[in-house]
Design a protein around this nucleic acid. Structure first.
Length: 648
RNA sequence: GGGUCCGUAGCCUAGUCUGGAUAAGGCGCCGGCCUUCGGAGCCGGAGACCGGGGGUCCAAAUCCCCUCGGACCCGCCA
């Protein structure tokens, strides 16, 4: 018999036992919960119920005596996966698994389902769009932002394994001030042909241009304030000093390019105006602007794609933001928003009254916002008529919902407010359902000790750089530990291990917590890391390679050691862990479980022989166990976008 | 000023949604293991009253209130 979820089979038996028992004893109370917990220690069995506390409270009886009654009315013979039900402590009911049976069903199912084991299919498959990365096409992906593609990709893999039709979308944010800035700088340099990785070079042009025009802007602003000695003036002065020191730093690192850009930009009278004009022209879809901005973005994007490909992260769709302004979707959205009455003119700009929508439709509670908290309004258009990011995100979201039932935006948690405003805009437009099916998967960033990375300030460590270093360090290890492997094999393994370590480090921590970057933290080859799990997998495969054929039939009752039971329990639990991870969008629980399983397996590995175990039937049973472990480790890693190597 | 998130051994984290029995790992530290199949490993030890204070409950790291510390947001940036 093959089971997709052995843990759940056992759980169901325990619940059935409780239900029957409570019915027989006439202890039924309304709204009783039959949920079961993991006991704190193996001596208390595999699952535990606190139901006697609940009932005892209602009918005023001692939980312990209730537990005793319940347990004595359970006949374990009725439940094949159960070996015992005992009462303990002040009223706990503990269930013990019948490992002869549980082992059989778990290992048989794992071997039979193989790649599919654990990945329990949802009963309600949906079309799901996971939008992630969506890095601005003006600079390379830095390590601060790299958690986004890594988490987004893992989430997409998990949802696909759950049986959803998943589409991975990259939203190319090519509209807006920053692309105008970099395009302007690029044009000033005479559209140079690039020699290095394009996103790195474009990123540098962006940083330098942005810095130079910032200083020009601040100087002009200060001149205007010349006659008044105000706080504003002081603030401007401070900002100018800040940017000047950044400029000095940049000039030191890139003297030629900096000087060239400075000279060329100084030729222009009103840079600010030129950049605004370019932004307007691009958004309006004027040919010249289109040619220029698209050229820069495409170059940058080529580099970004290369980075993502190196990380084994792929997309189904690359969505240009500009398309939505050019095809009038944005215009239509603005018109529709005005019609709702929630858009209002404030001087030259158009605002969206997000708070009023929330009040009128009573959405604050649902959005987790306090009743008396006023949601700031969202600016929809600038004074010059151009639109803003969140404004354009509204038609883009509607477009996504024409293709999918569910949309997940993997976006940093600092964008919580705009994501809420977006939802409210959908609501106002009459798309309440879409708003409900829009999820902001919020995550925290990777920060450097002491400061946040910033493309504008040119302070960042690139994802490329970190991957390169990770592979380099992995290569040193492989060289040391497996000198017999071929050069090609070593290289392939170094990539798998190095990049695996990096991905794992950014996935294993709860997404809402930030990760402070240190090289040793993100490139870790010891316990509690991808390489540790990969190593465990390689060890399991190494055993399996040594035997000609794994037998089809095992005598599972021979697997009696506590460590063996621990492993089987974790194998049985894997489908449940997977479901929880998929339903709650928690990739880190997969990482956690894989590490736990690897841990148990390594202990088992040193404690007991497999191939040379006697009698032969025991050896065969252990081989089945090892094979099952290898399958679950490989399946878990694959959900995280990490490859399980045969050797390392 | 208003809001969101985070605070668990020297350090990094799990557990918090859905309250249950001695708070679980890793790094570092101390002491062991070249035990047959891979030492990126294994075994043992010391180390935390879960930021602080109240409250609810038979039971609180977990729920509620207050408070302190940190990060982020409140922009005609994204």
């Amino acid at each position: 018999m093959v089971s997709t979820n052995p843990y759940n089979d056992f759980l169901k038996e325990c619940q059935m036992a409780l239900q029957n028992s409570i019915a027989t004893l006439h202890l039924s109370i309304p709204a009783i919960s039959f949920s079961l917990d993991a006991p704190p220690s193996p001596e208390f069995g595999e699952l535990t119920s606190t139901i006697s506390f609940e009932i005892g409270k209602k009918i005023k009886q001692q939980p312990r005596s209730l537990a005793k009654q319940i347990v004595s009315s359970i006949d374990v013979k009725d439940f094949p996966l159960m070996s015992a039900a005992k009462f303990a402590g002040t009223g706990y009911i503990n269930f013990y698994a019948n490992f002869a049976e549980l082992s059989k069903i778990t290992i048989d199912s794992t071997l039979a389902l193989n790649d599919a084991y654990g990945h329990v299919q949802t009963e309600k498959p949906k079309n799901v769009i996971v939008e992630h990365t969506s890095a601005n096409p003006i600079s390379p992906i830095n390590i601060g932002k790299a958690r986004n593609p890594i988490l987004g990709d893992a989430l997409a893999r998990i949802l696909a394994a759950r049986g959803h039709a998943v589409f991975r979308h990259f939203y190319i944010d090519d509209v807006g001030r920053q692309t105008a800035v970099v395009a302007y700088g690029y044009k000033k340099l005479g559209r140079p042909s690039l020699k290095e990785k394009p996103d790195h070079e474009i990123g540098l042009i962006y940083t330098l241009t942005s810095c130079i025009i910032e200083i020009i802007r601040l100087k002009l602003a200060l001149e205007k304030q010349r006659n008044v000695s105000t706080e504003i003036k002081q603030k401007l002065q401070m900002q100018l000093e800040d940017w000047s020191s950044i400029a000095a730093e940049l000039k030191g690192k890139h003297p030629r390019l900096f000087t060239e850009l400075l000279e060329k930009i100084s030729e222009d009278k009103d840079t600010e105006n030129l950049i605004n004009k370019l932004n307007q022209a691009y958004e309006a879809g004027e040919e010249e602007a289109k040619g220029l901005v698209r050229e820069v973005c495409q170059l940058s994007l080529d580099g970004i794609k290369e980075t993502l490909t190196n990380a084994e992260i792929f997309f189904d769709s690359w969505d240009w933001e500009s398309e939505f302004t050019w095809n009038s979707d944005v215009t239509k959205t603005l018109k529709a928003l005005k019609k709702t009455g929630y858009a209002f003119q404030e001087g030259p700009v158009l605002e969206f009254d997000a708070d009023k929508v929330a009040e009128d439709y009573k959405l604050k509670h649902m959005l987790g916002i306090k009743d008396d908290h006023e949601i700031p309004s969202l600016t929809l258009t600038r004074a010059d008529g151009t639109t803003l990011y969140t404004t354009r995100d509204i038609p883009y979201s509607l477009w996504k919902f024409r293709k999918a039932d569910k949309v997940i935006n993997v976006v940093g948690m600092e964008q919580k407010l705009p994501q809420q405003q977006l939802k409210l805009a959908l609501w106002a437009l009459g798309y309440a359902n879409h708003a409900k099916n829009l999820t902001h998967f919020a995550h925290n960033l990777v920060t450097l000790p002491g400061y946040k990375m910033s493309s504008r300030r040119g302070r960042y460590i690139t994802f490329d750089e970190v991957m390169k270093e990770a592979v380099k360090r992995a290569r040193e290890e492989v060289e040391k530990r497996s000198p017999q492997l071929s050069k090609e094999e070593k290289e392939r393994i170094s990539r798998i291990v190095g990049i695996g370590a990096l991905k794992y480090a950014l996935i294993e921590v709860d997404p809402t917590k930030r990760v402070v970057f240190t090289w040793d933290r993100v490139i870790n080859f010891e316990r509690n890391s991808a390489p540790y799990i990969q190593y465990s997998y390689a060890r399991s495969r190494s055993i399996l390679r040594r035997v000609k054929e794994t037998p089809k039939k095992f005598d599972y009752s021979l697997l009696t050691k506590p460590l063996e039971h621990d492993i089987i329990w974790e194998l049985a639990r894997y489908p449940e862990v997977f479901i929880i991870s998929a339903e709650n969008f928690k990739p880190n629980t997969i990482a956690d479980h894989a590490n736990l399983l690897a841990d148990k397996f390594n202990s088992f590995y040193t404690a007991f022989p497999v191939i040379k175990a006697k009698p032969e039937a025991l050896s065969e049973a252990r081989l089945g166990l090892v094979k099952a472990v290898s399958i679950v480790l490989r399946n878990s890693l694959s959900l995280l976008g990490i490859i399980a190597p045969e050797k390392m």
